[in-house]
Structure formats: structure tokens, C-alpha cells
Design a protein around this nucleic acid. Structure first.
Length: 359
DNA sequence: TCTGGGGTCCTAGGACCC
DNA sequence: TCTGGGGTCCTAGGACCC
């Protein structure tokens, strides 16, 4: 008997994806600090989508205000976000992954996916995968190998750029144990701070914690889930069930804060029109609406309402304006967002989501 | 330094029903 | 007059991800 092929989870993540796509169509940018964000105008309210490695060397990263990024890297080439271009590149990458022998592909976003495969040699498979993506798209990617989704996802970070790294139950604590809980996928600064309050600062400490002890702080689901996350445990099945959106939202940040109620009403109408385009394209009726309001400087409130199933444009507009009636008069508004929740088709699997749920 | 836009899921508390 | 206990649904808000 030879070695039995066993199931592995691979996590594929394109390196500096957005910046790389831009450099491909403008080769003269290779080796330069490239920052992509907003409309490419650093005087506007916008944030960095992606920075090339050359720009990251100056301390620029995703989510940073574009204004600050431009200040840190005076020579940077600043480009507007071009969703269509990235989506097209992404689709080619995903198609390439799906074409690999034995691959089950679960897309997580523009630039990343899980690949499930049974193989004796996951490193060799990962290398073939990288070569295929590079040949087809001229884009580099890193691959994490794991025995669970979480371990594969975390492993990728150690493979960057353009490398391969394996994390399993065998080396998880050796590699991750001493690191802060914030390094885990799903633990942000807020949760890390709340864990620290209970004396849990590292992954090893979280892994050793009793899941039930975390329930009072985080609730019946999230408490045990964080304990499991600390151990790297969880689901190991890659699920290629097509993703069905729960809803669609649109939001706008105003370059100048809004005060006039008429302007607010106009903005809500426009958001409703844009949301409706997506809903109509999906062909599934709206069952709820949520309005998000960010007042200047920084408090955010939401107001939601269930509504009877409808596609009716006027009905949805009227409901959206009802929600807008709850906006505090006279307070400057920096952002408005409108989300439409849609009815789920009967055959859609609940609990399957790109970033969470069930694991 | 001053924070986009598109998503998902979880929790607490109130309303309502039996 | 005062009021149990359980269940479900809804809303508002929080947290996280890319």
C-alpha cells in the first residue's frame, strides 16, 4: 500500500492583489510605491484599499485614510479603485483554481479562496496551484495548508509573499501559541481587549481556556467559538455551495456633511434606487430595510424595519423615507447607508457564509 | 491622523403570545 | 390586584472580515 491521500484545506491569497492588477496594466509602475483608494484623490475623504509592498515599507496599509497615506509617501502613485478590473482578474483566478484536478473551491473574496483537495503531498499541490495562477494571470499568490479552515487561513500569512506554509494540530501551538489573540482570524481589537480583561493575552492562553468560562463575557455562541479558535480547531470541509447574498446595501460618505433635510431625503432616494437595482437583478423580493446614519464626527445609528415581501419601487422608497424621518434634525450627517434584506430561496443553505458561521 | 464600501453574524432587551 | 414561565419575533447596535 502506498501513502493514502488525505483531505487538506488550502487557502489561496493573492499578493497585494489590487496593486498587482494595476501594475499589470501599467508596467511602468513596477517597483514603485502604488496606493489604490477612493477616486485616487488624496484630498478627498477616502481610505487605502491596497498598497504595494514598496508603499507598505513607508507604513501605509489598508484602511488608512488616503490623506495620511499620501503624506507618508510623497512620491506615491495614487490610483482610483476600479472594481470591474479587479472582479475580472478575480474571476480568472477562481476559474484557474476550479480547473485544478480534484479541487473544491470556496471563494472568500476578490483575492482569496479555500481549496479542498485529497492529496499525498499538499505542498506540491500548492506549488502547482501557484504556477497555474501565475501562468494564467501573471499574479502571485501565497498558499496556506491546514487540517482545518482556520489553520489554513492563518497559515497563509506565514507564506507571504509567494510562499507556502503548513499549520496543523501538530505545530499550531508552536507557531501561534505565543502570539497575541488579535492575530487570529475573527479576533479584532475589541475582542482582544475583552479577552485580556480575563487574563487571556496569547493564543496559547485562549486555547487553554474553558469554553464555558467565556460564556458570561461573550454569550453562548461566541464564547465557545473563541476558545475553539484559540486551538485552531473547527470545520475542515471546503464548501463550494454557491453563495447567496442575504441582502444588498449602498452607502455614501459625503465630502461635505449634510444638514439640510431636503438633501437628506434626496440622498435616501438615490440610495434606494441603487439598492433596488441590485435587488431586481437578483430577482428576490425585499423583506426588510435598514438605514445607517453616521453623524459627524463619529456616532453611528441604525434603524431597521421588516416589511412585507415586495419589489415595488414606490413602496420601498416610501419605507426608506419613513426610516429617514427618524434622523435627528440639525445634526451634521457624514454618511448614509441603506441595506435591503432579501427573501432567501428555499434551497439556499443557511449558515454558509464567506467569512463566518458554522465554524 | 481621522477614518470607504460591501458584506456577515451575534447579542440584549422589549413586545407579544399562550 | 398583582402577576409565572416559556417561547418567538423584532429592533438596535456591536464586532469582524475583505
Amino acid at each position: 500500500m502506498g501513502i493514502t491521500a488525505i483531505p487538506w484545506v488550502l487557502h489561496v491569497d493573492l499578493d497585494q492583489f489590487v496593486a498587482a492588477v494595476e501594475v499589470l496594466r501599467r508596467p511602468e509602475l513596477a517597483g514603485k510605491p502604488v496606493i489604490v483608494g477612493g477616486r485616487g484623490d488624496p484630498t478627498e475623504r477616502a481610505v487605502v484599499s491596497t498598497a504595494s509592498y514598496e508603499a507598505r515599507a513607508f507604513g501605509v496599509g489598508s484602511g488608512m485614510p488616503l490623506r495620511i497615506a499620501a503624506r507618508k509617501v510623497p512620491d506615491a502613485v495614487i490610483l482610483p479603485v476600479d472594481q470591474e478590473a479587479y472582479l475580472a482578474a478575480s474571476e480568472t483566478v477562481m476559474a484557474t483554481l476550479r480547473a485544478q484536478p480534484g479541487a473544491t473551491v470556496q471563494v472568500l473574496g476578490w483575492d482569496e479562496a479555500f481549496v479542498g483537495v485529497e492529496t499525498e503531498d499538499p505542498e506540491a499541490y500548492a506549488r502547482r496551484l501557484q504556477a497555474a495562477v501565475l501562468e494564467r494571470t501573471r499574479l502571485h499568490c501565497s498558499v496556506g495548508i491546514g487540517d482545518t479552515l482556520v489553520r489554513a487561513k492563518v497559515a497563509t500569512g506565514f507564506g507571504k509573499p509567494a510562499g507556502v506554509f503548513r499549520l496543523t494540530a501538530g505545530n499550531w501551538l508552536d507557531v501561534m501559541g505565543g502570539r497575541p489573540t488579535k492575530d487570529l482570524w475573527g479576533v479584532g481589537t475589541r475582542v482582544a481587549a475583552r479577552l485580556a480583561k480575563h487574563g487571556i493575552g496569547t493564543v496559547a492562553e485562549l486555547a487553554a481556556s474553558d469554553p464555558q468560562d467565556l460564556v458570561p463575557e461573550f454569550g453562548p455562541k461566541m464564547g465557545p467559538w473563541y476558545a475553539q479558535l484559540g486551538r485552531g480547531d473547527g470545520a475542515s470541509v471546503v464548501d463550494d455551495t454557491p453563495w447567496v447574498a442575504r441582502g444588498h446595501s449602498r452607502e455614501t460618505t459625503f465630502q461635505q456633511d449634510l444638514i439640510d433635510p431636503n438633501q437628506v431625503a434626496d440622498a435616501v432616494r438615490e440610495l434606494a434606487e441603487r439598492v433596488l437595482e441590485d435587488v431586481v437583478a437578483e430577482g428576490r423580493p425585499v423583506i426588510g430595510l435598514t438605514l445607517k446614519v453616521r453623524y459627524a464626527p463619529f456616532s453611528t445609528t441604525t434603524q431597521g424595519k421588516k416589511i412585507p415581501e415586495t419589489f415595488d419601487r414606490d413602496e420601498i422608497l416610501a419605507r426608506a423615507l419613513d426610516l429617514a424621518a427618524g434622523i435627528e434634525a440639525g445634526r451634521p450627517i457624514r454618511l448614509l447607508g441603506l441595506r435591503a434584506e432579501m427573501a432567501m430561496p428555499d434551497d439556499a443553505r443557511k449558515g454558509h457564509t464567506p467569512t463566518r458561521g458554522g465554524w
